[in-house]
C-alpha cells in the first residue's frame, strides 16, 4: 500500500454519553499505523471530547482523554477545532487540553497540534480530503 490518502476523522459527538468518541479514537490509533495523511476535526459536540479536566471516577468508565495528548507520538499532529462550536458552548481554546507534538523537521521543537478553524475553513478542509470518516 504505497498510495497515501488524506483521511479526515470528523468528531461531532460528546464523550461518555455514547461510545462513538472512544471507538472513533480507536480507529485513529489503528489508522496511524497505515502511514496515511491523517487529520482530526472536532466540531459541534465533538469539541467536548478534548475539554481538559475530565475525571470519570464517579461514572466508573475509562477516561480516554489522555489518549488525545498521545496522538502526537503517532504522528497525528493536525487537530482542527471549530471556533464557532467552541463559542456556541461558552468555551475557549484555554478550556481544551494542550495537544502538542514534537516536530522532527525542526529539531524536535514542541508545537501545537490544535488549529482553530471557522466554518469556511472547515468547508475547505473537507473538500481537500480523499476519505472522510464520520462518527
Amino acid at each position: 500500500m504505497s498510495e497515501s490518502k488524506k483521511f479526515l476523522y470528523v468528531n461531532r459527538k460528546a464523550p461518555y454519553g455514547t461510545v462513538y468518541a472512544l471507538e472513533s479514537l480507536e480507529v485513529v490509533l489503528i489508522g496511524a499505523a497505515f502511514e496515511q495523511d491523517v487529520q482530526l476535526l472536532f466540531v459541534d459536540d465533538g469539541v467536548f471530547q478534548i475539554v481538559k479536566g475530565q475525571d470519570t471516577k464517579g461514572i466508573e468508565m475509562k477516561n480516554f482523554s489522555p489518549t488525545y495528548s498521545a496522538l502526537g507520538d503517532y504522528e497525528v499532529t493536525k487537530m482542527y477545532v471549530s471556533k464557532e462550536s467552541l463559542e456556541e458552548r461558552g468555551l475557549t481554546v484555554d478550556d481544551l487540553m494542550p495537544l502538542t507534538y514534537e516536530d522532527e523537521d525542526d529539531d524536535w521543537a514542541e508545537k501545537d497540534s490544535i488549529i482553530l478553524v471557522n466554518k469556511d475553513e472547515i468547508a475547505a478542509l473537507m473538500e481537500e480530503q480523499d476519505v472522510v470518516l464520520s462518527f
Binding site: M1, E3, K5, F34, V131
Partner: peptide, 16 residues
C-alpha cells in the same frame, strides 16, 4: 479495525 482503513485506502468511495 485495519480492515476499515484498508477499505478507505483501496476503495474509490467510503460511505458511512
Amino acid at each position: 479495525l485495519g480492515q476499515l482503513i484498508e477499505g478507505g485506502i483501496q476503495s474509490d468511495r467510503l460511505v458511512v
